[in-house]
Design a protein around this nucleic acid. Structure first.
Lengths: 237, 237
DNA sequence: TTACCAAACCTGTAATACAGCTTTTGCCAA
DNA sequence: TTGGCAAAAGCTGTATTACAGGTTTGGTAA
């Protein structure tokens, strides 16, 4: 017999509980790692059954607002791209988003992350980016390894941009990219084209190391021009 | 006594159920609106209790991969920015993201949506954008109404870009923007500045109507330059 | 054929039970 | 006094049962 008095919040109890718990995090100014009340306590505070509280906490865990663990109280969680990735992959699989649209978003954002990385990167970050670019060249015979270094290269640039929102978005696209990358690779039919792509990555890394945002952004745009062209040549997906 | 035999999937049962249900959507090629099996059926198929199935479905509902409703079977859902918005707001409230970073993302993306909108907008979309810009001018004495038309203006441009990922991201920022917009408005201390801002919106709308992507993007960049400067003047947040 | 109604189906919420994991408490030994 | 350890308390994960109330389906009557 929950909410004995007072107006029931819009929607069902779980929706209300989600709102209450997020408000609790905000109002008490909780930070990642901080512990929330136990399920039983929340159940009593909000006057709903533990069932409702659990479904609300699971919802928040799916969005990565909280972390759950057996025996442990719920804790406030850190931003994480996994849940955005799930949404994006769902959008693609249900044909609400197509691959070309994702590449357009990536191009738009990554031209910016490349420029920001050139301005803000630490020495270590620049060398990490360069390391992945060089690893791509070294792994020439092994497409899967090239792809993994390529993905790591782009993530490293996004991190070096010092804007977690960019890193979140680019990270969320990795799952989809992993599925389409081989298509672009195969459509580059001769080794020269493939070596050129790897070389472009090294150049970009060097522009970031040199701290030149204009050149970095221009090279990133060039990279995406070529990638999108390669995907279109292959009939996209 | 679930999973009587066979290896238990990584993590807990709920995590496994989430994976199974998303795989089911993908493998059966379900589209938005299509119905999933009932909770009882899923419970039997996956050999876990209805409790687990419900928590998994709630998780997917939180991510907006499925829609739930009393008496109704779960259905595959359409992309929606509300869940991304929750994540972003959480990131801001836990100080993992700051407002300036969000404005940088917006500027990056919206310069692109403005250009794309100029290229792809329908007549109706262009007039909708222009309508909101003009409504901002007409509502001059009422900041809240100006803000709402401003938000609608940017969303309308994102939609007209014909890339749902851009619209998703911009939509997700609206909640946060609604909280910070008044700060920028107040920091524009004289009416001339404020009228100039409104006029810039009208100009931008006209560039989109005229189909000029270069000018549209340039005006959007100018708009964000001014907005970010206004927020910085106000000490940001 | 269409409108309507009842039955079947399904979800939302609650309550209880217990296994197993984590944190705290409190004691004992050095 | 301090350090370590073990017992106890606390908490979550899962299962089960029950029922109210919403939705869908199928058939009947007009």
């Amino acid at each position: 017999m929950p909410h004995a008095n007072g107006p029931v919040p819009v929607g069902d109890f779980v929706t209300g509980a989600i709102a209450s718990i997020t408000r609790l995090i905000r109002d008490q100014d909780l930070k990642p790692g901080d512990r929330l009340p136990a399920e039983a306590a929340l159940s009593e505070q909000l006057q709903v059954s533990r069932t409702v509280i659990r479904e609300a906490l699971r919802s928040l865990a799916a969005l990565r607002l909280v972390d759950l663990g057996a025996g442990k109280r719920p804790t406030v969680a850190q931003l994480d791209d996994a849940s955005v990735a799930l949404m994006i992959e769902h959008g693609v699989s249900t044909e609400q988003i197509d691959i070309q649209q994702i590449y357009d978003v990536r191009r738009t954002i990554e031209a910016r992350t490349a420029a920001l990385a050139a301005l803000r990167r630490t020495e270590a970050e620049a060398l990490l980016v360069l390391g992945h670019a060089q690893a791509m060249e070294r792994a020439f015979g092994d497409p899967v390894e090239i792809m993994e270094h390529d993905l790591a290269f782009h993530i490293a640039i996004a991190r070096a941009s010092r804007n977690p929102v960019f890193a979140l978005i680019i990270g969320a696209f990795q799952g989809v990219t992993r599925q389409t990358w081989p298509i672009g690779w195969k459509s580059r039919t001769n080794d020269d084209e493939r070596r050129a792509m790897n070389a472009l990555h090294v150049e970009l890394a060097q522009a970031i190391l040199a701290g030149d945002p204009q050149i970095a952004a221009a090279l990133m745009n060039r990279h995406f021009d070529q990638s999108i062209k390669a995907l279109l040549t292959a009939g996209l997906v």
